[in-house]
Design a protein around this nucleic acid. Structure first.
Lengths: 190, 190, 190, 190
DNA sequence: AATGAATGAGGCTTCATTCAT
DNA sequence: GATGAATGAAGCCTCATTCAT
């Protein structure tokens, strides 16, 4: 789950990600993951205790990565406007660079098989964003409303845009991303 | 063979909806649907040719209902602002009255098993909304940007809000719905 | 099983015969018989206690008919040559007039579900033929060999010919039937 | 995946042969084959894609064997009488050594599930025999009649004899086989 | 008698997991 | 560690039979 000697570990994670996104967790057979990864079915069980352990490892890996990407670039001392834009841009960069991973994290229901650690992880980014909103409100930059509500609206808008992009209904370039970001800022600014 | 006459037909649809939302299509066993519906497993096959036919019937039924609800109340001669608010409110009324159905329609990947008729149906509401946006732009009420992009942002925001509500992170009452609607209007208005 | 008030009884027998020949007993579903017969599935159970009772009734009906046809025209006082030809011709007439029935009787394994009465019936025609052979041997018309063996050879030849005809590998007309009959007579005559 | 290497492969074929002969293809459940073979039900699907693939493999295997046995000993330069006797004897040897296989090949209707390759295979031996007959006719050894008809009569007689033997109505020893062969030759010789 | 929806046992097949090599 | 054949529980579906109408 961290540095692993074998690169097969990563082959398996990559194959599982692709298949889970394509066909869902329950719709994906372990032997199918093995075949796509180019390893034997038994090999998966040398690296993961079960199919459930595999999906949890996968979720944790990518959730950590996106959280890290957002936190790493977050301008703690910037203006709320800058902070908003930075979070938006980092998430867009991530979602465009790793479409399968973002789709897996955001557009699939994992409730039935995620372990507690991952359920805790899942809400982290949104809690952080809600805090940023709340702080910006104290400075008067963002309209006075439940931070939770505003945050869910913006994340939802972002996800709607990304999903439309993934599904081919929308082409996302720099200009459109900036326009969308500005629109969303307008929906929350004071 | 399966006119809406039989109540079992509806028991099965209701049970399938609940389970598909809970555990996903592939995660739901046909005998589990039968048990929840209070019928024998074989009975499902008197009403639906297959599990796939069942999920398609379910999708079509509810998609028709929400499309109907939105179209029925759409103020064709109203101002764009009124039109926007009406669509928002009708969708909210529907999503709050039928949480499982809305969740099933919007928060699940159906790509692998939806038939062509349903794939066609799926995009209908969004195409309609994009047209409304485009028309409002010609009158100068909505900012000049791709209608498709603006529409996906607003639908996404709505869905983010609904999902947060369903998952217990947000309480939605009249006031919050109105506030959210106003926020989203601000994200697209000229 | 004899004169029945309802003609549905016969529709069912006819449909069952056609399907059993096409797909075998185990390969034929009772609802499929009902559909082909143009009756409801439940109706079959007003006329037959079970699928097994149906197949037994069918077997008995047609076995009786062919036995009757052969016996009716058998020239008890004729020469063995006449007797041989008559049996051959009667069976050919029957097999050509009722291909499905003959195929059902002779080319399908019924061992697993025939009742005792039918198992007894099954051997009747062959026992009769063996007796005819034995009697002809006492008069020196047929070569001295086990009647049972000669009879099975001739019946086998007849069946091989009929099957080839049914399966389209052979066209049977009067001339060919006569030629085949003469050939078979040559295989047993003194 | 299923080279003849694994003994289980053969266990399964043997079990399937015995059961198909006893109860027919549709009357035989895959789990029953597994049980008789002494393997798990799932194991069958490591060696055969489906029940239908299994029955086709079985048919092909034994059809190849009998064709090979007949061709291997066929005296291409012998007299028609020798050729006739050789084919008869080889088939008898085979049919007595492998009663289940011969019964499976000749006494069951496979039309519904045999693949094209097997349908092609099926007619091979008979086509060969018809050619032998036709060639013998050109030399004046066999009476002038359709080779196809004479051949079907002889094969039919052979099958009638074998079936009577299998079903206990006839005991076949060397003397009786020779007698039957001579009888059949008499039915076709000039 | 006739219907056909309903039943549920059982059939074919898949698949998460194990284990001998 | 790696393999992949083997397992058997469980999944989707069929079908002989029943029963309320």
């Amino acid at each position: 789950m961290n540095a692993r000697s074998s690169t097969r570990y990563e082959w398996i994670l990559d194959a599982a990600l692709a298949l889970f996104v394509e066909r869902g967790y329950h719709g994906t057979a372990v032997p199918a993951i093995a075949e796509r990864a180019g390893v034997a079915a038994g090999t998966i069980y040398h690296h993961f205790a079960s199919k459930e352990a595999l999906v949890n490892a996968l979720f944790q890996l990518w959730k950590h990565r996106i959280v890290h990407a957002v936190h790493e670039h977050f301008p703690a001392t910037g203006t709320p406007r800058e902070q908003f834009r930075t979070i938006w841009n980092e998430m867009a960069r991530f979602a465009l660079a790793h479409p399968a991973a973002y789709s897996f994290l955001e557009f699939h229901h994992h409730g039935a098989y995620l372990d507690d650690a991952n359920k805790e992880l899942d809400g982290g980014l949104k809690r952080f964003a809600a805090e940023v909103v709340a702080h910006a409100q104290t400075q008067g930059f963002i309209r006075p409303a439940e931070p939770q509500l505003l945050m869910e609206l913006v994340f939802g808008a972002f996800n709607g845009m990304m999903r439309a992009h993934y599904e081919g209904r929308l082409v996302l370039d720099e200009a459109r991303l900036a326009l969308a970001e500005a629109s969303c800022w307008d929906s929350v600014r004071a």
